[in-house]
């Protein structure tokens, strides 16, 4: 596979399916961690040129909290969890047992807890993938940034940019019903990983 733009509809659907399995596992873990029901929307899989990626995530200047980690080993890829800052604080308030609306500052404890959420989400997502593909995944610890969506995405997409002019974005949205919290989890497989995934899915 030379470029992500070569991926066909059937392959995109297969990728959606696999992201659904991963994200399902992640939603269960998050749900246990927070003691709340967490739902998922239908996954999105799309291929977009870099110049349009800002619009794709609802505006490049929106302020979001992003947790990013790299996966090395057999299946190199990036994983990014993005959520609007207010909603991130709400998640953290639930986690700490505070009245929602208590948190409004990124203290060390908040950052650390946010990274832990990202850790749990990505870890359970990757576990599901590992069972499916029989590969070894070695995720790094997450790093985080609270800033413009475009700035966060730009850096995350660098690795992809070295190979392609398009970004393949596998997106799952987690929804906490009561407050309609939505967070987006992006899986950004490198071409080699993408091939392995497609092979495991039987569509390559």
């Amino acid at each position: 596979m030379k470029d992500y733009s070569e991926i066909n509809e059937l392959q995109l659907d297969a990728l959606k399916e696999i992201s659904n399995i991963g994200a399902g596992n992640a939603a269960t873990s998050l749900s246990q961690m927070l003691g709340r029901t967490i739902n998922m929307s239908v996954p999105r899989a799309s291929i977009a040129p870099f110049s349009e990626i800002g619009d794709y995530v609802g505006g490049a200047d929106k302020v979001t909290a992003g947790g990013y980690l790299r996966v090395d080993g057999d299946m190199p890829m990036g994983m990014l969890f993005m959520i609007e800052t207010e909603q991130a604080f709400y998640l953290l308030d639930i986690l700490f047992g505070n009245v929602p609306g208590t948190s409004n500052d990124w203290t060390e404890m908040h950052c650390s807890a946010f990274k832990e959420i990202v850790n749990i989400l990505s870890g359970s997502y990757l576990n599901a993938l590992a069972v499916f593909t029989n590969n070894v995944y070695s995720p790094s610890v997450p790093a985080m940034a609270v800033d413009m969506t475009g700035a966060i995405l730009g850096e995350v997409l660098q690795t992809v940019g070295e190979i392609s002019d398009y970004a393949l974005v596998l997106e799952n949205v987690f929804i906490e019903k009561e407050k309609e919290i939505t967070g987006q989890l992006f899986l950004l497989p490198e071409p080699k990983t993408l091939e392995s995934l497609l092979k495991a899915l039987g569509v390559l």
């Binding site: 040129p49 870099f50 110049s51 349009e52 990626i53 800002g54 505006g59 490049a60 200047d61 800033d147 413009m148 969506t149 475009g150 700035a151 966060i152 995405l153 730009g154 850096e155 997409l157 660098q158 940019g161 002019d165």
Partner: peptide, 21 residues
């Protein structure tokens, strides 16, 4: 947008949103 370019003549301005790295 990201990985794009544009030119402009007076009085237009050029904007790029969310430069990170």
């Amino acid at each position: 947008g990201m990985a794009a370019f544009s030119t402009a003549v007076e009085p237009a301005s050029l904007v790029t949103i969310g430069l990170g790295s």
